[in-house]
Amino acid sequence: MYNKFMDKSFFSIFKVFFKIGALLLGGGYVILPLLTSELAQKKGWLTSDELCEYYAISTSLPGIVAANVAIFTGRKLLGTKGAIAAIVGVTLPAFVAIILLASVLTEIVHFKSVNYIFWGVGIGVITLLFLAVKEMWHSCITDKWTSAIYIVCLLLALSGKFSPAIIVIFSILVGLITQFIKSRRIKND
């Protein structure tokens, strides 16, 4: 009989994440349903609650969300070895696909029609970007405080004088200072 709860070896974890990486089309957003179907439903290695928790934390950590979730789950399954298996697995399909495509791209850009297509696709990409902003907007800008941070950061970014890293550090400081003031106020009351 096929054992659903097969052993969690380095290679079996790698295989699952390689599959997820290959199916991860259109960005990392779809990783949660993929993880749930592969790891919770098919393998039974983790519960979907655990996966949801890892996903939620991953979105609040720096770096690529899909990579963060992969490291979390890999680590939970088989420690550091599992984390390495997961991250290599989820990255490899993307890596190979891009190397192959990049080699082809440099050849085909000499065709006029290819340039026209890329001109058109540029519009599609900018559309997707603004739609992503709209999606983020709903979960990010919830009150006056977050609106103020948004406006200040936008102005800083548009001025062209500050690197994104500086703006990120700025917002971390704003968060820390706000919480510090708040904690002290509560203590004093």
């Binding site: 609040s60 001109w119 540029g122 519009i123 990409v125 900018i126 970007l129 603004f130 992503a132 902003v133 983020m136 907007w137 979960s139 990010c140 800008i141 977050t146 609106s147 941070i149 948004y150 406006i151 200040v152 950061c153 936008l154 970014a157 548009l158 994104p164 703006i167 990120v168 700025f170 917002s171 971390i172 704003v174 968060g175 820390l176 706000t178 919480q179 510090f180 708040k182 904690s183």
Partner: peptide, 30 residues
Amino acid sequence: LYIQRVVKALKPAGCALLSAVGIKLVFTAN
């Protein structure tokens, strides 16, 4: 609480950075 607050501050910052790129692209994309 500090981490929660920092995460809450980082989200609008990330959103603003992306908005800025979008705006810049509109002007540079010909």
